[in-house]
Amino acid sequence: MARTTNKYVGVDVGGTKILALLVSGDGEILGRSKRPTEQEWQPLAAQVAAVIDDLLATTGASLTEVDGIGLAVPGVVDSQTGRLVHAPNLAVDDPWLAERIRERYGVPVAVGNDVNLGTLAEAWYGAGRGASSVVGVFVGTGIGGGVVIDGRIHVGAHDQGGEVGHMVTVVDGPPCGCGNLGCWEALASRTAIEREIRKAVDAGRPTVLAAAAEEDHIRSGPIGKALRAGDEVAVEVMTRVAHYLAQGLLTIKHLLDPEVIVLGGGV
């Protein structure tokens, strides 16, 4: 059957959800499907396949129309073999995820770090379009980064290029999830924001965020409301985080001098 246009499946594999998109060759979104990530028992490849199957069923697209599948994963990927080396937010990670998906569907499969690919998307079709060098900084639970130069992702000698969240910003500073001290993401991420708010609450400082601090996660809505109300703790914490965020961005500017720095993420 002759194709009228190239179609591709893109899958964002996250710690809480798996999102699949059917897109045209020029980036138009033709359909989407989503499922929560099961972290305990179901093999990751089976979960990804279930979302892809849902996508094909809901869009009415057949596999013969799909020219390739791209997988974005929250971890370190060996750029030579496609092996998922380390994914700390996936309890059911599978080193050979891409190979299993390739075997199941019989089409080319590419895999890469999610933030690297997000930065590539911004350089190709988003805020960095037309720039020869783009750095993406995505602030969430941690801080992820990606570097794109002349349309290509810079992965570095050990596939860890762009890991800006682990630049040491304050020597002997707060502990980071990576085991180091004073990393950028230990100072300017959602994790840092929550830690500092809880520290203030534990010290007995008055704040409208006291109740929110008792939850597993402090949501952005209450923090924003507290900021607008001039809550002393919220203003102090967010001013400090903004200072460290700006400090890291300045370091990136001096090190790489990119045309564009794209900010994203859930914070």
Rank of each mutant, 00 (worst) to 15 (best):
G60A: 02
T5N: 12
G68W: 04
I261H: 08
A127Y: 01
V48H: 06
Q247I: 02
E65C: 04
Y105N: 04
L84N: 01
E65M: 05
V115K: 05
E236F: 02
V115P: 08
V208D: 08
I18C: 07
R32C: 06
R195W: 10
T58P: 01
D216P: 04
D26K: 11
A200D: 09
I197K: 14
D172M: 15
E163R: 11
D26W: 09
A186H: 05
V48N: 01
C183S: 03
P43A: 04
S79F: 07
A87E: 11
I143Y: 00
E236I: 03
I18W: 00
L21V: 14
G136I: 14
T64L: 02
A226M: 07
A203F: 13
I223D: 01
A200L: 09
C178I: 07
T119M: 12
V111A: 06
V9K: 02
A246I: 00
V77D: 12
L71M: 13
V260I: 09
R83G: 04
G15P: 01
L249F: 01
A211N: 12
E40F: 13
G27Q: 08
L71K: 13
V48Y: 05
R190A: 15
A45Y: 05
V260P: 11
R83A: 11
A57G: 06
H243P: 00
E236L: 06
E38Y: 06
G112Q: 12
M1N: 06
R195V: 14
E163I: 08
E232S: 13
I143L: 01
L209Y: 09
V170D: 01
C176N: 04
G15F: 07
I143M: 00
M1V: 12
R205C: 10
D202I: 14
W41D: 09
T191H: 13
L22T: 13
G106L: 03
T59D: 06
R219L: 06
R219P: 11
V107P: 11
V168M: 03
G221K: 14
G173A: 05
I193E: 11
T141P: 08
S62V: 11
L181V: 05
A192E: 12
V137N: 13
Y105Q: 01
L44T: 07
T207M: 10
T81C: 15
I223G: 00
P175M: 07
V208T: 10
V235D: 08
V11A: 07
L256K: 14
D202Y: 10
V241M: 13
R104S: 03
G118E: 14
K199L: 13
D231E: 08
R102T: 05
R35G: 12
E185S: 09
I252D: 05
R240M: 10
I101S: 00
I149V: 15
D150N: 08
P36A: 10
R3W: 10
A87T: 09
T119Q: 11
I101Q: 00
G177N: 04
R83S: 06
D257L: 03
V168D: 01
L120F: 04
H254T: 14
D67K: 11
T58F: 01
A203P: 03
R129W: 09
A212F: 15
I261M: 04
E196D: 14
A87W: 07
G82V: 04
G106F: 05
A50S: 12
Q80R: 12
I149W: 02
G70R: 14
E236M: 05
Y244V: 00
T207P: 10
R100W: 02
V13F: 06
T4R: 13
A87N: 03
T37H: 08
A49W: 11
